[in-house]
Simulated scan of single mutants.
Amino acid sequence: MADFFRWAHPLFFSIIVVFAIIELSISAWLVAKYNARHNFTHRSLRTRVRYTLFVSIWTVLFGTIFLIMFLVASTGFILTSIATHGIFVFMTWVLWVAAAAAVTQSVGGNLHCSTQTEFVYCGHLNALIAFAWMIWIFLTFLLVAIIVRGVIVVRRGEGYGGGLVDE
């Protein structure tokens, strides 16, 4: 399992950060257009897109920090522990499920851009929703893997401060 974490953990974090950068770009563009043109369908949609922008910034900033610390820091460092990664990934998982569900709900579940006339920037909203759910799915896999690794490390007697990989 530790060998799996050596390559899978950085891979998953990298995918999540890249998708969050894409999500950040889409949500920032939408926020800029909504602020400049005031053509949002309702205020809750504008607020939810802004929230998605915040969650994207959160994920890019802290996800990059955790990825770098995992790659360069020693196992005993606080940002490389099971508990710290688990808490960060769980908090980020909650933020993303809220963002994805909120934007999905605000457009009525799905958008068929060829048949709808209510929403401006329909394709962008679809992409925003799709990337938000994809990030949430990757975070779910990562959270499950961290929990499994945590159980293994705790049963071995290293406690929650144990590293994600063995030395």
Rank of each mutant, 00 (worst) to 15 (best):
I152R: 13
W93G: 02
T104P: 00
W136I: 00
S14E: 04
H112L: 06
L30V: 11
F19W: 06
T104D: 06
T84V: 15
C113D: 12
S114C: 04
F40C: 11
A36M: 07
F141S: 14
W133K: 09
Q105V: 06
L139G: 06
F138G: 04
Q116D: 09
S81W: 07
L30E: 03
R6Y: 02
A28S: 15
H112T: 14
V49L: 09
D166R: 12
A20V: 08
N126Y: 01
P10N: 12
V165D: 02
W93D: 04
R43G: 05
G123T: 10
V18G: 06
G123M: 06
R149Y: 02
V144C: 11
N39Y: 00
G123S: 10
P10W: 05
I26C: 08
E23C: 08
S106N: 15
L24Q: 03
I147N: 04
V148E: 07
R46P: 01
L128A: 09
V31P: 00
N35I: 00
T84Q: 07
I16E: 01
L139I: 10
I78N: 01
G109I: 05
L30S: 10
G86V: 09
G162D: 07
R46A: 13
A130P: 06
W7E: 13
V60R: 08
I16L: 11
G63Q: 05
S27M: 07
I15H: 02
V153C: 07
T75C: 09
F62P: 03
G159P: 11
W58F: 14
T84K: 01
F138D: 05
T104H: 07
E158A: 12
M1T: 05
F54H: 09
N39S: 14
R156P: 00
G63Y: 03
V148Y: 13
S56C: 09
F131W: 13
W29H: 13
I68H: 06
F62E: 08
V148N: 08
F119K: 06
F70R: 03
V97F: 11
A99R: 04
V103L: 07
Y121H: 15
I135F: 04
S25F: 13
I57F: 15
G123F: 07
P10E: 10
N39Q: 08
V151M: 09
T52G: 12
M69Y: 13
L61F: 15
W96G: 05
T84I: 13
D166W: 09
I22E: 07
A100V: 05
S74G: 15
H112M: 04
W93Q: 14
V151E: 11
R6F: 00
I65N: 02
A20W: 02
I26K: 07
A100T: 03
F70N: 09
V103M: 08
E23M: 14
I87Y: 03
L79E: 04
I68C: 04
F70K: 03
S27P: 12
W58G: 09
E158S: 10
V120N: 12
L95D: 02
V120T: 12
V31T: 11
I26Y: 06
C113W: 04
I15E: 00
L71I: 10
W93N: 04
A98Y: 00
A83D: 04
M134K: 01
V89N: 10
A32D: 12
F40K: 10
T117K: 14
A145V: 10
M1H: 08
L53V: 01
F12N: 06
L61V: 15
H42Q: 11
S74L: 01
A32R: 08
N35S: 15
V120F: 07
R37D: 14
L128F: 06
